[in-house]
Measured scan of single mutants.
Amino acid sequence: TEDEKKIQELLKRANGDVSKAEKLAQSQGNEELARRLREYANK
């Protein structure tokens, strides 16, 4: 999905570090994506 692409892109930029990727999403003002990242990471 589009969200998964965004999540994978963020994870790439954060070198696979979920908490960093989450902070990136939040810094972009994207709380929804940050929440999805957390769920994605907890799979």
Rank of each mutant, 00 (worst) to 15 (best):
R38I: 06
Q26R: 14
L37D: 01
S27V: 07
E2C: 12
D17H: 03
E2P: 09
K5S: 10
N15G: 13
K5P: 07
N15S: 06
V18S: 04
E32M: 06
L24Y: 09
L24R: 02
K23G: 06
E32H: 07
K5M: 12
R35H: 09
L24H: 05
E31L: 13
A25Q: 02
K5H: 10
D3I: 15
S19I: 13
N30M: 14
N42L: 14
K5C: 11
Q26G: 05
N30Y: 13
V18Y: 15
S27Y: 09
L24M: 13
E39I: 05
Q28F: 08
L10T: 03
R36V: 08
Q26L: 15
L24S: 03
A21C: 00
L33D: 04
A14N: 03
Y40N: 03
R36Q: 14
L11Q: 00
N42H: 09
E9I: 06
E4V: 10
T1A: 13
A21M: 02
A41T: 07
R35K: 14
Q28K: 05
A34Q: 03
E4L: 14
N42R: 12
R38N: 04
K6Q: 15
D3W: 15
E2Q: 10
K6T: 12
V18L: 10
A21S: 01
Q28A: 11
G16A: 02
K23D: 06
N15E: 08
E9L: 06
A25V: 02
E9R: 04
I7N: 01
R35G: 07
K12N: 10
E9C: 09
A25P: 00
Q8T: 07
K23L: 11
N30I: 03
L33P: 00
K20A: 13
K23T: 06
L11T: 00
K20C: 12
V18R: 04
Y40V: 04
T1E: 14
G29S: 03
E22L: 15
D17C: 05
R13Q: 15
I7V: 07
L10E: 02
L33Y: 02
Q28Y: 09
E39P: 01
A25H: 00
K43Y: 10
L10V: 05
G16C: 06
R35A: 12
L33T: 02
K20R: 11
E39F: 03
A14E: 03
K43D: 08
A21E: 00
A21Y: 01
L37R: 00
L37S: 00
N30W: 15
K12V: 10
E9W: 06
R35S: 07
A21H: 00
N42T: 12
N30R: 05
N42Q: 13
R35I: 11
N15R: 07
L24T: 04
L37M: 06
L37G: 00
L11E: 01
L10A: 07
E31I: 10
L24D: 06
K20S: 06
R35T: 09
A41N: 06
D17M: 03
E4M: 12
I7H: 01
Q26F: 10
R13Y: 11
R38L: 06
L24V: 05
L10F: 12
R13T: 08
A21K: 00
L24K: 03
K20Y: 13
E22R: 03
N30P: 00
R13W: 15
S27T: 08
N30V: 03
S19F: 11
E2N: 11
E9D: 11
E2A: 11
A41I: 13
E39T: 04
A41D: 04
A14Y: 10
Q26Y: 12
R13H: 10
A14D: 01
G29M: 04
K6L: 15
Y40H: 05
R13G: 06
L24Q: 05
E2T: 10
L11D: 00
E22S: 07
A14R: 00
K5R: 14
K12I: 11
A41R: 08
K5T: 08
L10R: 00
N30D: 15
N15L: 06
E9V: 05
K43G: 08
I7W: 04
K12C: 14
E39Y: 04
V18M: 06
G29F: 06
R13L: 15
D3P: 06
Q28D: 13
K12P: 00
K23Y: 08
A14M: 08
Y40W: 14
E4H: 09
L33C: 04
A25M: 03
K43M: 11
Q28W: 11
S19K: 14
A34M: 06
G29Q: 04
L11N: 00
E2M: 11
L10G: 00
L10N: 01
K6P: 05
T1S: 13
G29R: 03
L11G: 00
Y40L: 11
K43L: 13
Q26T: 09
D17S: 07
D3H: 09
R35L: 12
E39R: 03
K20I: 14
E31A: 10
K5F: 11
N15T: 02
E4Q: 08
E22D: 02
L33G: 01
L10K: 00
Q26D: 04
V18H: 05
A21W: 02
L10M: 07
R13P: 01
Q8K: 12
K23E: 12
K6Y: 14
R36N: 06
S27D: 14
E32L: 06
K6D: 14
A41Q: 07
Q8A: 10
A25S: 02
K43N: 11
S19V: 12
Q8G: 05
A14S: 07
L10S: 02
G16V: 00
T1D: 14
E22Q: 08
R38A: 06
R13K: 12
D3C: 13
E39L: 05
K12Y: 09
K43R: 13
Q8W: 13
Q8V: 12
L11S: 00
E39G: 03
S19H: 13
E39V: 04
T1L: 12
E22Y: 13
A41E: 05
S19E: 13
T1G: 11
E9T: 05
G29C: 03
K23A: 12
N15V: 02
L10P: 00
K20G: 05
N30G: 15
E22G: 03
N42W: 09
R36H: 08
K43I: 09
Q26C: 10
E39C: 09
